[in-house]
Each structure stands twice: as structure tokens, then as C-alpha cells.
Write a protein that binds this DNA or RNA. Structure first.
Lengths: 114, 114
DNA sequence: TGACTATATGTGCTTAGTGGATATATAAAC
DNA sequence: GTTTATATATCCACTAAGCACATATAGTCA
């Protein structure tokens, strides 16, 4: 039957993943797609559309800034950098994720005990 | 500004929470609403509509069974019980939640190191 | 030179699930 | 017999995910 446990509406942590990846240095869309895959919250690569949508939105919100880089082959790259506000939001995400980890731990412990 | 970190689409773990609560004994909608609030995945109580929807769906899927209890005051209660299949699915949820906890741990560790 | 490919970014559309309001039903209280 | 409390269920608007597709640029190569 292969049930889709963990389904519901998956928590993919796209925003904190992108901010985390950008904390390691400015970067653009394509490399970010594979970078955030390493955090394990997605199965495989994120759909490009979602990544770009998140980046644009974070740009509008001031969490990242972007500049065009026309160097190199192919079309220009929109290179994103994390802002101080973005760092702050990432910190809030970390707090939130710690709480979620603790809740999961408690839930699992309760299951094992019962 | 009060950003809605952890927003996106919250992982509420409604299904495993309900199964967990039912593992402690048969129960019906209203008490379940407050029972699953204790696991901490929701802020406050779950909206009744959502709880009933999940229960009905799990009933259709065979994860729980229901019988009417007309005893006591007020309208009859639809009392749910977890089935062996429901226990199995809860076990799968636990595995999934352990993985998620580990991913969160790794992400947080990476943040602290960097 | 012009079709093809690779790289890169961006938009549109469908669907699923949430959240909240509201509807239905029963029985006790007064 | 109207109100209140308990209990279950449905309806609808909104949002975000998921995926397919559109746009753009510059090399490759016949």
C-alpha cells in the first residue's frame, strides 16, 4: 500500500535552508538548489520554481539582497547575499527548530514508554 | 514586525497525535482535541473541524474504528479506537519523526559551528 | 548562420490542506 | 418551550506546494 507517512503538508524548511546556504557566502539560484538538498529536508532537489519564488520573496522582505553577475558563460546570474536582517531571521528559525526537535523527542519518548 | 517564523505551512502532526492519544484508550472528538494539544505541535487547541476531518479520514483508511456511544448526557459520542493497522502507521510516523529530529539536530549543529 | 544545447531565471495553473465560520443534533436546565 | 451545553459535521476562502512551461543568453557545430 505504501502509505505516505510524513505527508500532510511537508515541512521543507526552504527559507532557513536558503538563508543557511547563503550564510556560507553569496550564491545564485542553481547552486543553491543542490546546496539546500544537502540539509535533508527535501527528497532530492527542490523544484527550481519554488527556490526562485522563495529567493524573490526574501529579497522583497529584505532578508537577502541581489545583484546581477554577467561574467562567465551563459545568461547572467542573480547573485543573492544574506542581510543582517536575514541573519536575525535565521536565528529565529534555529530557535523554532530547536523547539520542534524537543517536541519530537518528547513525543518519541512517550511512544517508547507507552 | 513579528515575523511568522515557523510559518510556511506548519507541521502539526495531527495524524500521529490522534493515533498516539488513541493508543492510550478509545476516546471521542472533544477530549481528543485537548489531548493532542498537550503534545505541543499546535499552538492552543486544534480547530474541531480539522480533528473530525482527520478522524473520519482515518476511519475510512482503517487506521481507527468508531462506534456510537449514546450513554451519558447530551448527544451521542462517536468513540474511536486504534486498529492494528493504525498502530503500524503510528510506528512509521515515529520513524519519520526520528529522522526529522536528526535532520533538525544536524542543521542546528551546522549553524552553531559556522 | 541558424538550429541545438546548456545554463539560468521566472510565471502559470492545479490541487491539497488549513483555518474558521457555520450548520445540525441531542438532552439537560430552568 | 426556550436556552444552554455538548458533540459532530460541513462549507468555503485562502495559501502554498508541485509541476509544467515560458523566457533569455551564450556557446557548439554542422
Amino acid at each position: 500500500m505504501s502509505r505516505k507517512v510524513g505527508g500532510e503538508k511537508k515541512q521543507r524548511y526552504m527559507q532557513p535552508s536558503l538563508l543557511m546556504a547563503l550564510r556560507e557566502g553569496p550564491n545564485y539560484g542553481y547552486p543553491l538548489i543542490s546546496a539546500i538538498g544537502e540539509y535533508g529536508f527535501l527528497s532530492g532537489d527542490a523544484p527550481p520554481g519554488m527556490v526562485y519564488r522563495h529567493l524573490r520573496q526574501m529579497d522583497e522582505e529584505g532578508l537577502v539582497t541581489s545583484t546581477w553577475d554577467a561574467e562567465g558563460d551563459g545568461p547572467a546570474k542573480r547573485v543573492y547575499s544574506i542581510t543582517p536582517e536575514g541573519e536575525e531571521v535565521l536565528g529565529m528559525w534555529i530557535e523554532h527548530m530547536e523547539q520542534q526537535r524537543d517536541r519530537l523527542d518528547a513525543f518519541i519518548a512517550r511512544y517508547r514508554k507507552g
